[in-house]
Design a protein around this nucleic acid. Structure first.
Lengths: 139, 139
DNA sequence: GTAACTGCAAAATATTTGCATCCTT
DNA sequence: AAGGATGCAAATATTTTGCAGTTAC
């Protein structure tokens, strides 16, 4: 666990600090995408400002990415391996937002279908977000 | 113009007030989705709180909807006609977010392809957002 | 030792709530 | 006239910035 977080930080040539390791561990053990607030609760020993700055750093380095949501929250999730190395980010799977429990899930098995943009537009990134009720809440 | 805004408000059984008409007019004449801030600038004669409350009312009645974005902004856009009458909202087109000019455009001609969710998930709404450079900025 | 990172304080922004007044129906 | 909508003031919440002290390399 510690090894994995340190590897990720080294790969991105970031210095290894306890707050960064802690936040990475939170992401690694999370089954859903996390809001700033979630991380604040799970890493309460660290200053809120540090969390803001750490998330920003991770975003800049492509370690995490944001998932668009229809409510007014930003959720963060780890990028997959190929995502880190490939320079610019693209998650190829659909994200699911449960209206009942509020969790954001990566549907790793559902890939985003290709679309054709009108002439003159250049595509850098594509996101697909589905709202509804998740499996757990349906039971 | 005035007629159209009043019709929309009547259809949603909302009382006709000058702030609501103004904000609707802004949406009707906007070519892009708007952030709260944009509306504040365009309707500066009205209190910021009124704008918050008006947008929330319009959301509740399904007159406007939010468009998910990857940055931390919420953008609002008018729902299409069938959207208002059909009870619950679904835009069927792709949204484009220009990384250069920051505008959010509705690509009315690009419809969202169907996807299949894993067993146990129920879909209520689907959103597709593309980031990149828009036609105008490419020229 | 040096550069980068963190925590604290505080500033700047954004959002929500309560209440008295005004407007729509 | 009655209920709802607005504006103002103020309370909260969120995000950003500056700076001094600390830590990683």
């Amino acid at each position: 666990m510690g090894a994995q977080t340190e590897f990720i930080l080294k790969t991105s040539s970031l210095s290894i600090t306890s707050s960064r390791k802690k936040i990475l561990e939170i992401f690694l053990s999370a089954s859903t995408a996390l809001a700033h607030q979630d991380i604040e609760k799970l890493a309460e020993q660290y200053d809120r400002v540090t969390i803001y700055r750490t998330l920003q750093t991770f975003l800049d380095r492509g370690i995490i990415h944001t998932i668009p949501t229809t409510d007014n929250t930003i959720k963060y999730a780890l990028c997959s391996d190929d995502c880190i190395t490939s320079g610019h980010h693209h998650d190829n799977h659909v994200h699911f937002l449960c209206d009942q429990c509020g969790r954001t899930l990566c549907l790793d098995d559902v890939s985003i279908p290709a679309i054709t943009l009108p002439k003159g537009y250049s595509m850098k990134e594509i996101n697909m977000v589905v709202n509804g009720i998740c499996k757990t809440c349906m039971e």
